[in-house]
Design a protein around this nucleic acid. Structure first.
Lengths: 341, 341
DNA sequence: TTGAAAGCGCTAACAT
DNA sequence: ATGTTAGCGCTTTCAA
C-alpha cells in the first residue's frame, strides 16, 4: 500500500519548491519546459492526485451538492434522484444523499451536519413530518447563510427559494374530470398523504373538477388515511357505498391496495368502478388490470432541480428572484378507466 | 445573508487568539470559565459552525463514504442503498453516491474523481460493463492506495477485499429444486444477466439441481438474452417447447415479462407452468398471479456492507485478511409454484 | 525560471 | 489562562 503522494513529496524529490511543482503540474508558462516535463512525468508515474479537500478549503467550493429525499422506495423519488444524479454528474458535481425517512429530525440533523462547508447547495423534498410540523427554520437558515437551496415536489410557501413542482392540483383535476367525462357519477378520493402539500393540492383539484360538474362535495367520499389507520378497513367502509363508481388514489401503494380490494369485491373494472392512481411506476403498469395513472415525470423534475441548483451555484441565475418551475402531469390511460370518445 | 463566521472573526471580536477561541469552543479546561462562556454564547448567537473541510484536511478523515451502484430502479439495489444509508447515517458518515448506469467508464471516472481525499472508503457493486470487460484495475488501485473498499453483490475474485454477497448459486439451486420437487419435469432458465457474476452463479445453481435430479442439462433451455435482443421473441421461441413446465427467471423485469407472455399463452399457472423469479420486490408480490421469488434481502446486505466498511475505516478489522460474508436467500412461495407436501 | 510567504479554517504542541 | 507556532495540501501573489 503506497500512501498518497503530495506536492511536498515531489518537491523534495526534485529539490524544488512546492510552488514550482504546483505550477508545473498546472502547466504554468512560468516554468521551464524541461522541469515541467520531468515533474509531470513523475506525477503520472506515482499517480499524483491533488487533494480535493485542500482545494475545497482554498476555493470554498466543494463541487458537491446535498440531496435530501423523504424516501427512496417510492418510484417518483427514485426517478427524481436518478435525474438529479445524472445532471450533477454531467456537470462534475458529486452528490451527498440523505434519506430522511419522512423524519423531521433526520432532515434537520442532516442539514445541520452538512451546513458546514461540505456542500455548495441543497436539493430537498420535505419530509412528511416537516410538513406536518410546518417548521422550516432549518431551510430558511441555510438560505440565510447563503447556501443555495432548491425545493422540489414537496415544497412550502413558507420559504422563498427556487422550486420545481408538479401541477398536482391540475393533475388531480384532470384525473377526476376524466372519470366524470367517461360516465362516473360518484368519485371518491383516497389519500394517505393528506398531510403533504401535494396531497392537499390534489384534493383541491379533485374538488375543483366535481364543482365544475355541479357535483356537491361529499366529505365522506374524501378518505384521509393516516399511517396508523387500518387502510383496508377504511376502504371497505368506503366501498360500503355501492354508488361509488370511481376512485382517485393519491399515492402508489394505496392505489395497488385499493385495486386489490375492489377486485376482491368483484366489481367490474372499469365498467362498475374506475380507478386512477398517482405515480406512474412499474407497479400500476403490470398489475391486472393495469391502472390508469397520473405521471409526474420524476426524472425530468430531478433534472430540472439539479440544473437550477447548479446555475444558482454558478451565479447564472438572477439574484433575489425566486422562480417556481411547474411541470405538467400527464394522464396515462390504461385499463382501469373507460375510454373517452 | 450573513456570511459564515469563523474562529478568526470570533477571535478578533474578543481580542483573543484563534487558539483560545478554538479551545473555548471545545470546552478545554485550559480556558477560564468566563471566557469560555462568553465565547460559546457568541458562537451560538452567530451560529458558528466549524468548517468541516478544514477539519477533514487536518484529520485526513472526511467521514464520508462513496457508494457506487449499477442502477437504482432495481428493487434490490434500492433496498441495499437504503440499508447502507441507514447504517452510515447512524455512524455519522455521509454518503456520496453514484449510479454507474452499468457503465464501466462512469464507474472508473467516479472512482478517479473521488480517490482524492474526499472519501474514507468505497462500497461498490460492479457495473455490467465492468464485469464484461473483466477489468478491475480501478478497484485494485484504490485498494493499493490504502482506500478501504467493500464489494457487494456483483463482485469478482480478481480483487481481494472484503465482500458481501448473496448465495446466488444456492438460491437458484433451491428454486429449481422446489419446482422439481413439486412435479416440474422440464425447467427452463431465463437470464438477461448472464454477463454478471451473479447470473453465472445462478446458472450453476440451476444446473446443480437438475444434475442432482438426474436430469440432463439441455442448453436450449438456458436462454441468455442480451440487452439488444428481442426478449419477447426469445421467450416465445422457448415456449414453443410445450413440455416446459417451469421457468426460473434470474431478474425481476424479465420475470414480469415472462409471466405476461405465459399468461397470454393461457397456460394454467402453476399447474401447467411454474415460475420463480429472482428479486423479491413489490412487483412480483402484486402482479396476478403473484410470483414466487428468491429474496436477496437487499437492506440487510446493504447494512452489512456499510458496517464492514465502517469497521475497516476505524481499523476494527483484522488487517490483511479479506472476508466474504454470504447472506442466505429465501424462497418466498406464492401463486406461481405448486405447494410442496 | 524559480522560490518565499501568506492564507484557506482549524487543531495541538509548546511556550508564556 | 492565553498565545505562538506549525502544519494539514494546495494556490497565488510577489520577490529574487
Amino acid at each position: 500500500m503506497k500512501k498518497r503522494i503530495t506536492l511536498k513529496h515531489i518537491a523534495s524529490e526534485f529539490n524544488v519548491s512546492i510552488a514550482t511543482v504546483s505550477k508545473a503540474l498546472n502547466d504554468s508558462h512560468e516554468i521551464s519546459t524541461s522541469t515541467k516535463e520531468k515533474i509531470q512525468q513523475y506525477a503520472k508515474d506515482y499517480h499524483y492526485k491533488p487533494n480535493n479537500v485542500a482545494l475545497s478549503l482554498l476555493n470554498k467550493k466543494t463541487k458537491t451538492i446535498g440531496v435530501i429525499v423523504p424516501n427512496i422506495l417510492n418510484y417518483f423519488f427514485t426517478r427524481a434522484f436518478a435525474g438529479i444524479e445524472e445532471v450533477a454528474s454531467k456537470n462534475g458535481f458529486n452528490i451527498i444523499s440523505c434519506i430522511s425517512n419522512e423524519s423531521y429530525e433526520k432532515e434537520v440533523n442532516t442539514m445541520e451536519l452538512l451546513k458546514n462547508g461540505t456542500l455548495d447547495g441543497f436539493i430537498i423534498s420535505l419530509s412528511e413530518e416537516t410538513q406536518v410540523k410546518n417548521n422550516y427554520g432549518h431551510i430558511s437558515n441555510a438560505i440565510n447563510e447563503g447556501l443555495p437551496v432548491i425545493l422540489f415536489d414537496r415544497v412550502t410557501e413558507m420559504v422563498e427559494c427556487n422550486k420545481v413542482i408538479v401541477n398536482d392540483l391540475e393533475g388531480a383535476y384532470n384525473a377526476t374530470k376524466h372519470m366524470l367525462l367517461t360516465g362516473c357519477k360518484k368519485v371518491a378520493l383516497i389519500s394517505p398523504i393528506s398531510n403533504l402539500s401535494v396531497g392537499k393540492l390534489r384534493i383541491e383539484g379533485y374538488k375543483k373538477a366535481l364543482t365544475e360538474f355541479g357535483i356537491k362535495i361529499d366529505p365522506n367520499l374524501i378518505v384521509k388515511i393516516g399511517k396508523k389507520d387500518d387502510f383496508d378497513a377504511n376502504i371497505k367502509i368506503l366501498l360500503g357505498d355501492k354508488d361509488i363508481d370511481g376512485l382517485l388514489c393519491l399515492e402508489e401503494d394505496s392505489t395497488i391496495k385499493s385495486l386489490e380490494i375492489v377486485k376482491k369485491k368483484r366489481y367490474k373494472i372499469p365498467e362498475e368502478m374506475s380507478i386512477i392512481g398517482f405515480t406512474n411506476g412499474k407497479l400500476p403498469k403490470h398489475v391486472t388490470p393495469n391502472i390508469t395513472t397520473v405521471s409526474q415525470h420524476g426524472t425530468y423534475i430531478g433534472k430540472l432541480a439539479a440544473e437550477m441548483l447548479i446555475k444558482q451555484i454558478n451565479n447564472q441565475l438572477e439574484q433575489g428572484i425566486s422562480t417556481t418551475k411547474v411541470v405538467k402531469t400527464s394522464l396515462i390511460e390504461r385499463e382501469t378507466t373507460k375510454k373517452l370518445y
